[in-house]
């Protein structure tokens, strides 16, 4: 019963907390630019406003366009639900390991890109093409991070990875550092942040994610936006879960530990959001084709992480 209960609570938590994390990043960025910025709660108001609006759908769009926001939102929500953030003792945790998590995000991306192509506009195609280009390097990098962690801990399950780290099996290893570096780079790309994509831009020709969802409006746009926020939270949680898991409750821990887990998670998400905002404020967006170098670098880091494991083993 307990795992089921925690599972349901966690499901609600991730969807409720995602806009806050985005709002926090935006606010910190505004402060760093010398602006006052909107409150952290502004994304909730934005989503609510979008929900209230009528949805306008392009004449040329097919049924795929209607269902995509739901598919994308649910896929990302599902992925965020499965990833342990407060406790590893949740009913859904074994349903998907890291490979499946990557694939779930892949589902969201696949359908978003298709929706970008559906209305038959140049901008939608532009965004879809760029998104798939970025993903074609980001996703392998993510899988290779999984590979190196799996070689280290003999598991691809995030819950078991958390337990592996918490049990103190991991010291200060070069490999872990390399894998974390790779994951950070991928996280920036996959959640559409500067230097890969600029969520705040109004220049259609430079957009990636925004170009794909350009034809969306009303509740559909709200779902797409919420999914993007949740994806950002998911990647923060993933970094926390794999590399900073301290505070996450484990099966058998008493219920109060869950509160500790919650507090630790909120603190870590907030800290990472601030770091993200600071990083974004001090870097320009890179040229589109430099992304290949950037994510290729992430892929190489992850590969090195795996290979270093043997090297350090041999020493």
């Amino acid at each position: 019963m307990i795992p089921l209960l925690w599972g349901i609570l966690h499901t609600l938590l991730v969807v409720a907390a995602a806009p806050w994390a985005t709002g926090l990043t935006r606010r910190v960025k505004a402060r760093l630019q010398g602006r006052r910025g909107a409150s952290c709660w502004q994304p909730y108001r934005d989503l609510w406003r979008l929900l209230q609006k009528d949805s306008v759908i392009a004449d040329s769009a097919s049924w795929l366009f209607h269902i995509t926001p739901y598919v994308v939102f649910v896929a990302v929500w599902l992925a965020a639900t499965i990833l342990p953030t407060l406790t590893t003792d949740m009913i859904m945790t074994p349903a998907a390991d890291l490979i499946a998590l990557v694939a779930l995000l892949g589902v969201a991306r696949f359908f978003t890109a298709l929706a970008g192509l559906d209305a038959g506009t140049a901008f939608g195609g532009l965004g879809a093409s760029r998104e798939m280009f970025i993903a074609s390097l980001g996703e392998p990098a993510m899988l290779m991070v999984t590979f190196s962690l799996s070689v280290l801990a003999h598991t691809t399950s995030p819950a078991h990875l958390v337990e592996f780290v918490l049990a103190g099996h991991v010291g200060l290893e070069v490999s872990v550092g390399l894998a974390m570096g790779a994951l950070l780079m991928v996280a920036l790309a996959e959640s559409g942040r500067i230097p890969i994509d600029n969520p705040a831009t109004h220049l259609e020709l430079t957009m990636v994610h925004e170009a794909m969802v350009l034809e969306y409006s009303g509740r559909h746009l709200a779902l797409m936006e919420a999914a993007a926020m949740m994806r950002q939270l998911l990647f923060l949680s993933l970094i926390i879960c794999l590399f900073l898991p301290w505070g996450i409750a484990r099966p058998g821990d008493a219920a109060p530990w869950l509160l500790v887990g919650l507090a630790a998670w909120i603190a870590k998400v907030a800290a990472l959001s601030v770091v993200l905002a600071a990083y974004e404020s001090w870097i320009a967006k890179m040229r589109l084709f430099r992304i290949a170098d950037f994510l290729g670098g992430a892929l190489l880091l992850a590969l090195l992480a795996t290979i270093f494991l043997y090297v350090s083993e041999a020493l």
């Binding site: 499901t11 609510w48 929900l51 209230q52 609006k53 009528d54 949805s55 306008v56 759908i57 392009a58 004449d59 040329s60 209607h66 739901y70 939102f73 649910v74 929500w77 599902l78 639900t81 209305a119 038959g120 506009t121 901008f123 350009l214 034809e215 009303g218 509740r219 709200a222 779902l223």
Partner: peptide, 24 residues
């Protein structure tokens, strides 16, 4: 289950109207 929840929530709290229009 999540999809059903999403649809219910969106349609309960949000606008249900959809308009067709030319692309932007």
């Amino acid at each position: 289950a999540l999809a059903i929840t999403t649809v219910l929530v969106v349609h309960h709290f949000g606008s249900q109207r959809t308009r067709r229009a030319p692309v932007w």
